[in-house]
Computed example of a mutant assay.
Amino acid sequence: MIGRLSGTLIAKQPPLLLLDVHGVGYEIEAPMSTFFKLPAIGEAVVLQTHLVVREDAHLLFGFATQTEKNLFREIIKISGIGPKLALAILSGIGVDDFWAAVRAAETGRLVKLPGIGKKTAERIVIELRDKAGAGGPGDLGMLNASGVTISASPIAEARAALESLGYKLPEAQKLTDAVHKEGMSTDQIIREALKRAIR
């Protein structure tokens, strides 16, 4: 799996962009939210990527942030939604707004997105509702142009860590909210949350 690419932007023509990585040109499809953040042609860029392997093609999708990539991966797990439609969704609504719509079960807001009918919107809400807390799963910040991680808040990182340990998102939220105090580090929140979990 190609999970991240760092190189020089050679061309951009939505939804396609071309990235030169040490002499190899990668064709990447990206949502408009990523295109808006791209530098000028000839400049360096770092993209989070997801590779889709089909019988007739290998398709590479790129994202400006890890949160966009995480949402893309959640959306394509839903029956009837492929990568192209997932890109259209990300192009039409921001990550935070998407999760807010899912939390509030605002299917009318989702139906306004290209390619999303009422039944698909209802399926999105039903299948992703449990993951819609705290801006969605795996909200671990983003990479800047030099590939350095810009951290999310300690509480968001702690929730993601608890999820990776097998806790469901609502449970991870409940535990971290119960122990979080201003100024606590991610490690402190995780430690206190685990103590509370085994009481």
Results as ranks from 00 to 15, higher is better:
179 V>R: 09
55 E>M: 02
34 T>P: 09
17 L>H: 08
99 W>K: 13
37 K>M: 12
189 I>Q: 02
23 G>Y: 04
80 G>N: 08
141 G>V: 11
27 E>M: 03
197 A>G: 07
67 T>K: 03
158 A>W: 11
18 L>T: 14
162 L>A: 07
26 Y>F: 14
11 A>Y: 08
117 G>F: 11
54 R>A: 11
27 E>P: 05
145 A>G: 04
43 E>C: 03
4 R>Q: 14
24 V>F: 12
158 A>L: 11
46 V>T: 15
98 F>V: 10
179 V>W: 11
11 A>L: 09
90 L>V: 12
167 Y>I: 03
101 A>N: 14
66 Q>M: 14
105 A>P: 06
49 T>K: 00
130 D>C: 02
16 L>F: 14
79 S>W: 00
14 P>W: 05
150 I>Q: 13
15 P>F: 01
31 P>M: 08
140 L>A: 04
139 D>F: 05
136 G>L: 07
46 V>S: 05
60 L>Q: 02
147 G>S: 06
117 G>T: 13
149 T>E: 10
196 R>Y: 03
12 K>L: 04
122 E>I: 07
119 K>M: 11
5 L>M: 06
69 K>Q: 12
25 G>S: 10
185 S>V: 07
60 L>Y: 05
34 T>F: 06
41 I>G: 01
149 T>G: 10
88 A>Q: 15
166 G>N: 02
88 A>F: 02
160 A>E: 08
111 V>K: 15
119 K>Q: 14
141 G>W: 10
186 T>I: 00
129 R>S: 13
64 A>S: 15
97 D>S: 15
185 S>W: 07
51 L>H: 01
45 V>R: 08
73 R>P: 01
188 Q>W: 01
186 T>F: 06
14 P>A: 14
62 G>F: 05
158 A>H: 11
123 R>E: 03
164 S>A: 09
148 V>S: 12
93 I>W: 03
70 N>R: 09
49 T>Y: 00
196 R>M: 14
87 L>A: 07
92 G>Q: 10
87 L>Q: 13
144 N>Y: 08
58 H>I: 14
17 L>V: 10
162 L>F: 04
88 A>T: 09
1 M>Q: 11
